[in-house]
C-alpha cells in the first residue's frame, strides 16, 4: 500500500517535470559549465562512470572464490548476469568457440548503449545516443576493433579478402569492398541515432498534445526500443567481427 502511494506520488511529481523537460528542451546537464554544447558528452561520461562504480561495488565486496555463487535474490549483479549470459549465448552462435575473447568489448558496448538509451526516459535528461556524434564514436570503435581483430587473427593476409575471390577482378572488387566496409559504421550509427531520437520525438510530441497517461504508453515503447537497438547494435558488431576473424572461402 505504501509502495503504491509512493509510486503515485512520484508519477504525479514527475509528469509535469517531464512535460517541462519536453517542451523547453531542458536537461540537467546544461547546468554544468559549457553545458549547452557538451550536455550529451556529460551524459555519456556520467553513464560510463555510473557503470564503473556499479561494477566496482558489485565485485569489491567479494572474493574470487565467492563470485561463482549467484546472489540469492534479484540484485543488480543478477540483472547484469542475465543480460550477459543471453549475449554470450548469441555470441557463441555467431562467433564460434572463441567468442569469449570478444565478449568484454561487446558486452560493455551493449550495457553502455542500453543505459544511454534508457537515460532518455528519465524526465530532465536527453539520451546521449540521440546525438549523432556519440553514435558515430561508438560505431568507429567497433569499426576499428573489427579490423584490428581481423589483422590480429589472420595477419597481413587479412587484407587479401578485400580483393575478392577472383584475382583479375580485384581492381573492381577493391572499391566495392571499401564502400561496403565504410557503409557498416555509417549504418550502425545512423540506425541507433535515428531510432532513439525518433522515439524521443514521439514521446515529446504526445507530451505536448496530451500530458497525461498517453505518453506513458510511448515510454513503455521507449524501453522496448532501447533494449532492441542496443541489442541490434551488438549483434551486428558480432557479425562484423565474425566476418573479419573467421576465414572461409566466402565472407
Amino acid at each position: 500500500m505504501r509502495k503504491r502511494l509512493l509510486g503515485i506520488t512520484a508519477t504525479a511529481l514527475l509528469l509535469p517535470a517531464t512535460a517541462m523537460a519536453a517542451e523547453h528542451g531542458f536537461t540537467w546537464f546544461q547546468l554544468l559549465p559549457e553545458g549547452g554544447h557538451f550536455a550529451p558528452m556529460y551524459a555519456a561520461v556520467t553513464i560510463a562512470l555510473l557503470l564503473v562504480v556499479i561494477s566496482v561495488l558489485a565485485v569489491s565486496s567479494k572474493k574470487t572464490a565467492e563470485m561463482v555463487i549467484p546472489d540469492p535474490s534479484f540484485t543488480v549483479r543478477n540483472f547484469f548476469e542475465l543480460i550477459l549470459s543471453f549475449l554470450a549465448g548469441i555470441g557463441d552462435d555467431i562467433l564460434g568457440h572463441h567468442s569469449k575473447k570478444y565478449m568484454p568489448l561487446l558486452g560493455s558496448c551493449f550495457i553502455f548503449i542500453l543505459f544511454m538509451n534508457l537515460l532518455g526516459l528519465i524526465p530532465g535528461f536527453l539520451p546521449p545516443t540521440s546525438k549523432m556524434n556519440i553514435t558515430i564514436g561508438l560505431a568507429l570503435v567497433i569499426f576499428l576493433s573489427t579490423h584490428f581483430f581481423g589483422v590480429k587473427e589472420n595477419g597481413i593476409s587479412y587484407f587479401k579478402h578485400f580483393l575478392g575471390p577472383y584475382m583479375p577482378l580485384a581492381p573492381l572488387m577493391l572499391p566495392i569492398e571499401i564502400i561496403s566496409h565504410l557503409a557498416r559504421p555509417m549504418s550502425l550509427s545512423l540506425r541507433l541515432f535515428g531510432n532513439i531520437s525518433g522515439d524521443h520525438a514521439v514521446v515529446a510530441g504526445f507530451m505536448a498534445l496530451v500530458p497525461f497517461v498517453v505518453p506513458s504508453i510511448f515510454m513503455g515503447l521507449g524501453v522496448f526500443v532501447s533494449f532492441m537497438q542496443a541489442f541490434v547494435f551488438t549483434v551486428l558488431s558480432m557479425i562484423y567481427i565474425a566476418g573479419a576473424v573467421v576465414h572461409e572461402e566466402e565472407h
Binding site: I90, S187, R191, V232, L236, I239
Partner: peptide
C-alpha cells in the same frame, strides 16, 4: 529469431 532480426534488418539501410 533475434539474431536474424538484427542481421536482415540491417540489409536495407546498408
Amino acid at each position: 529469431f533475434y539474431r536474424e532480426l538484427g542481421r536482415y534488418g540491417a540489409l536495407g539501410i546498408e
